[in-house]
Computed example of a mutant assay.
Amino acid sequence: MKLADWTAGGARVQLNGHRLFVRQDGDGRPVTLVHGFPTSSHDWAPTVPELVAAGHRVTTLDLLGFGQSDKPPRHRYSVHEQADLIEALWEHLGIGETALVAHDYGVSVAQELLARDPARITRTALLNGGLYADLHRPIPMQRLLHSRVGPLLARLTDEKRFTANLRSVLGRPVQDEVLHDMWTSVAHDNGHHLAPRLLRYIDDRRAHFHRWTGSLERYEGPLLFVWGPEDPVSGAHVLDRLRRRCPRADFTVLTGVGHYPQLEAPEETARALAAFLTDRTQGTAN
């Protein structure tokens, strides 16, 4: 589904003084999908139809500072505020218990939600993300954007540079049209200028390392990791620790896939998530 069609199927909802882009698809058991940095909920477009067909009410949103949601230019963005906004959205939509699926930046938001109220999260599925701050390996561009030169560099970023950096974390090719839509989502309302502010989530991960790793490792609900081992940021080196620290979890490891399983291997990822969310998980540890 193209970005324009995805956006047309959602609405902007006022929450905690901000307007967030939100979509609701399907009926049945609730599941909330949380996207990563620097893109948007459109990353989940290939996944949603499979989950709807499996009998789920799928909630997707653009986090504050991303996609079609508000992008206040001088805001101090934080993972905690993103979790506040998701809880406010659940209240607005009348969602109590829900399954939770998250990728990249979204896994930190998921960890904060698990730390707050793990009983509310019926099942958790996580895709490539910095679950352990000490294992996070940002690409050179992210390091620069997170440095003192970040604001200047962000303003010089264009689609060509963005696409080149995105391709560097992929293991399988992704269509040019998909990458263009990703850039369009990022650049909407000059969102690419916000990268240094949004990247403060790296500092949040360090500051809340024990709280967030503890929330993951103590979680008693069903847990699935859908992982691309070729990801240079959060790939096979993270899997090794997850296997040791989360021995009850299921793993679907996608050979040859990098940082974006839902875009590099959309059918395999959607099937794995649908099976897990409907209690039919068969983890494949490659």
Rank of each mutant, 00 (worst) to 15 (best):
M1R: 10
L3Y: 13
A4K: 05
A4N: 06
T7I: 14
R12Q: 03
Q14P: 09
Q14V: 05
L15S: 10
G17T: 04
F21T: 09
F21A: 13
V22F: 01
R23M: 04
Q24W: 00
Q24M: 08
G26Y: 12
V34Y: 04
V34H: 04
H35L: 06
S41G: 15
H42S: 09
H42P: 12
H42V: 10
W44D: 04
W44V: 05
A45D: 12
P46K: 02
T47I: 15
T47S: 09
E50V: 10
E50Y: 09
V52D: 09
A54S: 14
G55L: 09
V58L: 09
D62P: 15
L64I: 01
L64M: 06
G67R: 06
K71S: 06
K71D: 05
P72H: 11
P72K: 12
R74I: 00
R74P: 00
R74A: 08
A83H: 08
I95W: 00
I95C: 04
G96M: 02
G96T: 09
E97I: 01
A102F: 12
H103W: 13
Y105R: 08
G106P: 08
V107C: 11
V109R: 12
I121L: 14
T122Y: 03
T122E: 08
L126Q: 07
L126E: 03
L127W: 07
L127C: 07
N128R: 10
N128C: 03
G130S: 15
L131V: 03
Y132Q: 13
H136V: 15
H136N: 14
R143G: 13
L144F: 04
H146K: 04
S147G: 09
R148N: 11
V149N: 00
P151V: 06
L152W: 08
L152Y: 01
L156D: 00
T157R: 07
E159S: 13
T163C: 00
A164V: 13
L166M: 15
L166F: 12
R167T: 11
S168T: 06
V169G: 06
P173Q: 02
P173F: 02
P173S: 02
V174R: 03
E177M: 02
V178S: 04
V178F: 02
A187I: 01
A187M: 03
D189I: 01
G191M: 04
H192V: 01
L194I: 05
Y201K: 03
Y201H: 08
Y201L: 09
I202K: 00
I202H: 00
D203M: 00
R206T: 13
F209T: 14
W212L: 08
G214P: 15
S215A: 15
E217T: 14
E220A: 15
E220M: 06
G221V: 09
F225P: 07
F225W: 05
F225E: 02
W227Y: 03
E230C: 08
E230Q: 13
D231L: 07
P232G: 11
V238S: 12
R245M: 03
A249V: 03
V253K: 08
V257P: 06
G258I: 02
Y260K: 04
A265S: 10
A265E: 08
A265Y: 02
P266A: 07
P266W: 03
T269R: 03
L273A: 10
L273T: 06
A274W: 05
A274L: 05
T281L: 02
G283F: 05
